[in-house]
């Protein structure tokens, strides 16, 4: 209890919680490392294109970082790993088939505009990688939603375009999904190991969970945001997701598909753009979950994780402000 309190105090006091440059870059490279399983699965399913797209994103991010820091006459901090991480995350959020300019422009929007213009690492309001992807999705809607079936080498299949499970779910309903994937257990298994169409790194839930477990073990992320996020999505899609009435939705499909696992464990937990107090993090997670379910079930886009996190990023300063001041106020009174 005492330890927990101490930790909370620390987090409350320093707004960008990164204490020194050394530990910043250590965190960044560790998070990058935790994405390795997901990246490996992406290469396994989507072949050399996965390496190509991710590499473009990384190069674009590093260049943008260097370019803006150079222009603004700041210290060049390309080596701290944050731009590298943004590039990797952005790459894992791209479909395998995008033309070369999309990763480059998206990473410029992510690092130069969303991060560096706002003052660089620690000051950005929005998650850079997600902002880059949102920009790309709206600018090139066709290219950003052309999905290919995974073609694992040993299965000897040709890549064909197809819809993502969420796309099928939105357009045609759950019966079509079962038609495509077989029975329910096969569907769940395939979603779990990631044998489905989707962005490069989002498909394999297992690989993402391994990375997340590593980060949890290392205490680089806490459970508050991901768990409240996932629980809210599960609950709401169970209640409202079904066509036959309340409580007939299939929360497992919703939890395992789309960018939910990647978003909840690796993007929503971004230190800079999520609230710093635990209570705020739970509010943030519930908000993300609510908006994701709302967009998936009711709005025009089949997937809402990206928009949900970005929308909640807008509210982060507000959440921090309200919950923080209350904590301070309470302590002041206790002190008296």
């Amino acid at each position: 209890m005492a330890v927990a309190k101490k930790e909370q105090e620390l987090i409350v006091s320093v707004s960008p919680h990164i204490r020194s440059e050394e530990s910043t870059s250590k965190i960044m490279w560790t998070v990058t490392l935790s994405l390795l399983p997901a990246f490996a699965m992406a290469v396994y399913y989507f072949g050399p294109r996965a390496i190509y797209v991710t590499a473009l994103c990384v190069v674009g991010s590093l260049f943008s970082e260097w370019f803006v820091q150079r222009m603004a006459g700041k210290e060049i901090a390309v080596k701290d790993g944050s731009a590298f991480l943004t590039g990797v995350l952005l790459g894992l959020n791209m479909p395998s088939s995008v033309p070369f300019y999309i990763p480059l422009v998206a990473s410029f929007v992510a690092v130069a505009i969303t991060k560096q213009l706002f003052g660089g690492l620690g000051y950005n309001i929005f998650n850079p990688a997600l902002m880059g992807r949102a920009f790309a999705l709206i600018t090139w809607p066709r290219a950003m939603t052309t999905w290919f079936t995974p073609t694992a080498a040993f299965m000897g299949m040709d890549a064909t375009t197809t819809a993502t499970p969420l796309g099928i779910l939105k357009e045609e309903g759950v019966h079509k999904l079962l038609e495509v994937f077989g029975d329910k257990m096969t569907l769940y298994t395939k979603l779990l190991i990631g044998y489905r169409a989707g962005s490069l790194g989002e498909t394999s839930v297992i690989a993402l969970l391994i990375g997340a477990a590593f980060l949890l073990y290392k205490r680089y992320i806490s459970w508050h945001i991901p768990v409240s996020f996932l629980a809210t999505v599960g609950l709401l899609t169970w209640i409202f997701g079904g066509k036959e009435g309340l409580f007939t939705g299939d929360p497992i499909v919703h939890l395992l598909s789309g960018g939910l696992m990647l978003g909840a464990w690796f993007m929503a937990t971004d230190y800079v753009t999520c609230p710093s107090v635990k209570k705020g993090q739970i509010v943030f997670g519930i908000g993300c979950g609510f908006l994701t379910a709302l967009i998936r079930l009711k709005a025009g886009y089949p997937e809402g994780v990206m928009f949900a996190i970005l929308l909640m990023n807008c509210f982060t300063p507000l959440i921090d402000r309200n919950l923080k001041s209350r904590v301070f106020g309470a302590r002041k009174e206790a002190g008296k």
Binding site: I138, L291, G300, C314
Partner: peptide, 8 residues
């Protein structure tokens, strides 16, 4: 840009 998520 984030608000475009609500479209539709």
């Amino acid at each position: 840009l984030a608000f475009t998520g609500f479209s539709g």
